[in-house]
Simulated scan of single mutants.
Amino acid sequence: MGAVTDEKPHHLGHRQRLRERFMSGGAASMPDYEVLEMLLFSALPRGDTKPLAKALIDRFGSLADVLSAPPERLAEVKGVGDGIVAALKLVREAGLRLTRAKALNRPALSSWAAVLEYCQAAMAYENREQFRILFLDRKNTLIADEVQQTGTIDHTPVYPREVAKRALELDATAVILVHNHPSGDPNPSRADIEMTKKVVAAAAALGIVVHDHLIIGRGTHSSFKSLGLL
């Protein structure tokens, strides 16, 4: 009869070591796959999460890409079920709400870094174009943000009159237009420039100011105002 042992699976010690590193201030130096390992602890209370974390990073490229991936693509990775998809999407939603809270109900033009951080978090890793509007009141305080349209990988239909109409409904006196380029290149296209001109004209007819049009790429952006296009 073999001897009884209290030895615990090696992954339990690994989990504890990761937690200790994280809590002792080492989070910034942890690679993406280790942060993802920890995120998976709650969804996979037993077993080693490292292989799945590495598989997800290998498939999508980075932690940000994993968190932003569509549920159906996440589910293509062996070992990923509904619980893991829900856990990853919950983390992304929490991050979006944090960055949004930093920007909402604050003067947008003097809190520009917070506005950009939110737009990057919300749109940079989307695989389809989105056209988002940030609505401002008379004090240029950000009072609402809405995705007006979602398009394809390289085109989003925009209806200038609808932009102006929605601003009136929210009692906004100014807007900031935002859309993403899934390619990662934030340079405006000719279509982007022409569309912006039409939105500016429709808004001006109703006394609404377009402060800027931001194009969001991955970790970068362009500003129509800075480029002299607005």
Rank of each mutant, 00 (worst) to 15 (best):
T5E: 13
M38H: 07
H179I: 09
G2C: 03
S110P: 02
L116G: 01
I208L: 10
E7L: 03
R97W: 08
V200W: 10
L44A: 08
A103E: 01
L12Q: 07
S42A: 13
A144S: 08
V209H: 10
A64F: 05
F41R: 09
A43I: 09
R106M: 05
D6I: 01
R100Y: 10
K198G: 01
W112R: 11
I143D: 01
N127L: 12
N140W: 08
I208R: 08
W112S: 05
M195A: 12
Q120C: 04
S183E: 09
E169G: 06
I176V: 15
L67G: 00
I84C: 09
A204K: 15
G207Q: 15
K50G: 12
L88R: 01
H10C: 10
L227V: 07
L227G: 00
P157Q: 01
A203Q: 06
L142R: 00
E76D: 11
R138C: 04
L56K: 10
V209L: 14
K197R: 12
E72T: 12
R92E: 09
F22M: 06
P107M: 04
W112Y: 11
A121P: 03
A144C: 04
R73C: 01
R190F: 06
H10W: 13
A69C: 05
S189R: 11
P45D: 15
E7N: 08
R17H: 15
D32I: 03
F41I: 09
G61Q: 08
G13E: 08
E169N: 04
A3D: 12
T152L: 13
K225A: 15
T173L: 10
L134D: 00
L134S: 05
M23H: 05
L227K: 02
V4M: 11
A87Q: 09
E169T: 08
E146S: 10
V199Y: 08
T150H: 03
L206R: 07
D185I: 03
Q16E: 15
Q149T: 15
G81M: 07
F131G: 01
R138D: 10
L136P: 01
A64K: 13
S226Y: 06
Q130L: 11
A43F: 03
E34A: 09
S226F: 12
S189N: 11
I84V: 14
A113V: 15
R161P: 01
P107K: 10
I133H: 00
T99K: 14
A86Y: 09
Y159G: 04
F131W: 02
V35F: 02
R132A: 04
A121N: 13
V35G: 00
E20F: 06
A3C: 12
S223C: 07
R128N: 06
V163D: 02
E20M: 12
E117K: 06
P160R: 13
L116T: 08
H11C: 10
A28P: 06
R46I: 03
G26S: 11
D171G: 02
K89R: 15
R21A: 02
F60G: 00
L74V: 07
I133T: 13
I208Q: 01
V91G: 00
F224C: 01
E7D: 07
D171H: 12
S68N: 07
D82N: 05
E169M: 03
G228M: 04
L109R: 11
A144T: 03
E169V: 09
A94C: 02
V80T: 08
L63A: 04
L52M: 13
E34T: 03
A108S: 13
G25D: 01
K50D: 08
N180M: 09
D58F: 06
L63P: 00
E146R: 14
L104S: 11
